[in-house]
Design a protein around this nucleic acid. Structure first.
Lengths: 189, 189
DNA sequence: CCAGAGTGGAACACGATTGTTCCAATACGG
DNA sequence: CCGTATTGGAACAATCGTGTTCCACTCTGG
């Protein structure tokens, strides 16, 4: 991207802004830019120097979010193992992207249809894993892929906020999440 | 409340404003008041006549939300049947409050700790139902009440947005939700 | 040491939202 | 039918977030 022309110093500042923006705007997408600047520990002037308009900043954190989610999807190796195992791995990996979860899930306005498509067929691979799960008996055939996608996201978001609000160990919360998800998708006995 | 002094006409207008506010602010808590007025089919002037400041309107929909949730909790009869049955009933009843779900869940700033407490021990009865479920074997003992509360809310919110966005029958979505929840809370085989 | 990169603060104009006032039009009850 | 209750619109000031400009300060590398 444009980062190519950034010196080391500018790259660090840019990253600090992006991280702060994901954290602050994840909690409230209409938070004033001054809050983002404060969180990033930079002046409002500097923020405007890197991202002239609010929409530029939004575009940037959108790109960053998609990037992190893509990498997480990659790491989950959705094509391996049973369908249920693949979904649990995906859950584990997505849990690691942290603040991005709030951004993508709670602000439903954030990622448009187009953004999701551009986020490169993760949806397809997800659907394929669910299909496989339906066939190999590890995923309840009554639950369609679109529903499970919904469940997974809400579960993740709930887990993340539970961890941050209750101040519980993330590792512990992740175990609870996997346990809950596994039970939710398993076929009826 | 103040409604005591309202004529029939004023009561109707007041209710229209509250309903519109829950719908509009549920999607975006920082939406301009003009949007609320439009949705309520009322002039902005009228809105200000009923609720002079934004904070007054917020307070009102907060009270209304707590009221609807309390009634729903009542209807769920948490003390009857197995723990799991009680939780599923609660899920069904909460699903009916609709737009309030977005308001309470997605805007985490909305209900403060104090508001929750004032919402009268629903938390306690919920905890009791979970406890009972742990003992009668209908709820996995590894899942604490606070976690299940989290799961229930996120599941409900996901279900509600799924229904409104995908344009699916609410009844169908509710069945999926109950099915998913039941699986999630059941003890491991 | 010095030039330039990088930064932060102050000040400004602009637009949007808020909250207020006043007045005319309409609906409703007695 | 008349008078009051209720409403909507227009116009206004005040506030807040945004985006811009300008200037002074602090680093850092040559």
């Amino acid at each position: 991207m444009v980062d190519t022309q950034d010196t080391a110093s500018r790259a660090r500042t840019r990253q600090a802004i992006i991280d702060a923006a994901i954290a602050v705007l994840g909690k409230n997408l209409s938070a004033p830019l001054s809050e983002v600047a404060t969180a990033a520990d930079v002046g409002r002037t500097t923020l405007h120097r890197y991202y002239p308009e609010r929409s530029d900043l939004i575009k940037a954190i959108k790109a960053e979010s998609v990037l992190r989610l893509s990498r997480a999807t990659e790491r989950a190796r959705l094509a391996e193992g049973t369908g249920a195992e693949a979904l649990c791995r995906l859950c584990e990996e997505y849990f690691e992207v942290g603040d991005v979860l709030s951004l993508v899930f709670s602000e439903s306005q954030f990622l448009s249809e187009d953004d999701w498509c551009q986020f490169g067929g993760a949806e397809d691979r997800f659907g394929a894993a669910v299909e496989r799960g339906h066939r190999d008996g590890s995923v309840d055939p009554d639950l369609p892929a679109s529903w499970l996608e919904n469940v997974l996201w809400s579960q993740l978001y709930a887990a993340w906020s539970y961890a941050t609000e209750h101040g519980v160990s993330r590792h512990h919360v992740l175990r609870l999440t996997i346990r809950t998800l596994a039970g939710a998708i398993a076929p009826r006995p």
